[in-house]
Amino acid sequence: MRPVDFQLVLVIVPGLLLIDLVPTPASAESVPFSCMILPGEDAASILMTNSLARDASCIVTCKFSTTKYDNNPQITCAKPVPAGKEVEMCRLTSGGDRMVKLTEGHAECTK
Rank of each mutant, 00 (worst) to 15 (best):
R2M: 06
R2T: 02
V4W: 06
V4M: 06
D5P: 03
F6K: 01
F6I: 03
Q7K: 00
L8H: 01
L8Q: 01
L8D: 02
L8T: 11
V9Q: 00
L10T: 02
L10C: 01
V11H: 12
V11M: 01
I12P: 01
V13K: 00
G15L: 06
G15F: 07
L17K: 04
V22P: 00
P23W: 00
T24C: 00
T24G: 00
S27Q: 10
S27L: 02
A28Q: 08
E29G: 00
E29N: 07
E29S: 14
S30C: 03
S30A: 13
F33P: 09
S34K: 14
C35K: 04
C35N: 11
I37H: 03
P39Y: 08
P39I: 04
G40V: 05
A43C: 02
A43F: 05
A43N: 09
A44N: 05
A44V: 08
A44P: 03
A44D: 07
S45Q: 05
S45E: 06
S45T: 14
I46C: 08
L47P: 03
L47N: 08
M48N: 02
T49C: 06
T49Q: 10
T49M: 14
T49V: 13
S51I: 15
S51V: 10
L52C: 09
L52T: 12
A53W: 12
D55H: 11
D55Q: 13
A56G: 07
S57A: 10
S57V: 06
C58W: 04
I59C: 01
V60A: 10
T61D: 04
T61I: 09
C62Y: 04
C62H: 06
C62P: 06
C62N: 02
K63S: 14
K63F: 00
S65V: 06
S65H: 03
S65C: 06
T67A: 08
K68E: 14
Y69E: 14
Y69W: 08
Y69Q: 13
N71C: 13
N72Y: 11
N72A: 13
P73F: 06
P73A: 02
P73C: 04
Q74E: 15
T76A: 08
C77F: 11
P80C: 02
P80N: 11
P82C: 08
A83V: 14
A83C: 09
G84P: 05
K85N: 11
K85R: 13
K85M: 10
E86D: 07
E86W: 07
E86N: 09
E86L: 10
V87R: 01
V87K: 05
E88P: 04
R91P: 04
T93E: 06
T93S: 11
T93R: 12
S94K: 11
D97F: 15
D97E: 15
D97Y: 15
R98P: 09
R98K: 14
R98N: 15
M99D: 07
M99Q: 12
M99F: 15
M99T: 12
V100K: 15
K101D: 07
K101N: 10
L102V: 13
L102I: 14
G105S: 07
G105E: 03
H106K: 07
E108R: 11
E108H: 12
C109R: 07
T110Q: 10
T110F: 00
T110I: 14
